[in-house]
């Protein structure tokens, strides 16, 4: 049991400069979290504590919001974000093989990040580019009609 409210002194300079830009209204929570994620890369428990202290709301409320929106990451992400579509159209056209190939190549499961923080892999429901199925998006760049071999080549080019 934490017996006290201790003001959380942050040790991350980026975090402090982000916090300084926001007023203390509760309505600032989501923009503040987005900003933290943009600057720090993910929402650490320290960031959540700092956001809660800044807005004077319980930490559990921040956690509720962070876990509700899939846009927020709770762990440090890789330098390269690999997102493989698993929507219906892509699924029918072999997205399963692609994700398996990517996972095997990087040695991590979807939702995980490599130990060297180079790659994160994620499944996504549908990018809305079904005509190009199967689709894979790496660092905002969209690749269509992907084959397992092609996926591995894309990854290899990044390392």
């Amino acid at each position: 049991m934490r017996r006290s409210v201790t003001a959380t002194a942050t040790h991350i300079p980026e975090l402090e400069s982000v916090l300084a830009r926001y007023s203390r209204e509760e309505s600032q929570l989501i923009p503040l979290l987005q900003d933290i994620q943009d600057h720090v890369g993910y929402i650490s428990s320290e960031s959540m504590q700092a956001a809660a202290a800044h807005l004077n709301i319980p930490e559990s409320s921040v956690y509720g919001v962070v876990t509700f929106y899939s846009q927020f990451y709770l762990t440090r992400q890789g330098r390269h974000k690999v997102r493989v579509c698993q929507g219906t159209a892509c699924h029918v056209r072999g997205a399963g093989e692609i994700i398996r190939a990517v996972s095997a190549r990087l040695g991590i499961k979807p939702g995980e990040t490599t130990k060297d923080f180079e790659f994160s892999v994620e499944r996504v429901a549908c990018f809305g580019s079904c005509a190009l199925a199967p689709v894979m998006v790496v660092n905002e760049k969209v690749y269509g009609n992907v084959t397992p071999e092609m996926a591995i080549r894309i990854l290899d080019e990044l390392t």
Binding site: P58, S60, S61, G64, T67
Partner: peptide
């Protein structure tokens, strides 16, 4: 106090303390 909150959504929704 606000020690707990509903975290996640959909089938993942659950009562949780931070983290």
């Amino acid at each position: 106090v606000g020690a707990i909150e509903i975290a996640g959504r959909g089938f993942e929704s659950r009562i949780a303390a931070p983290g």
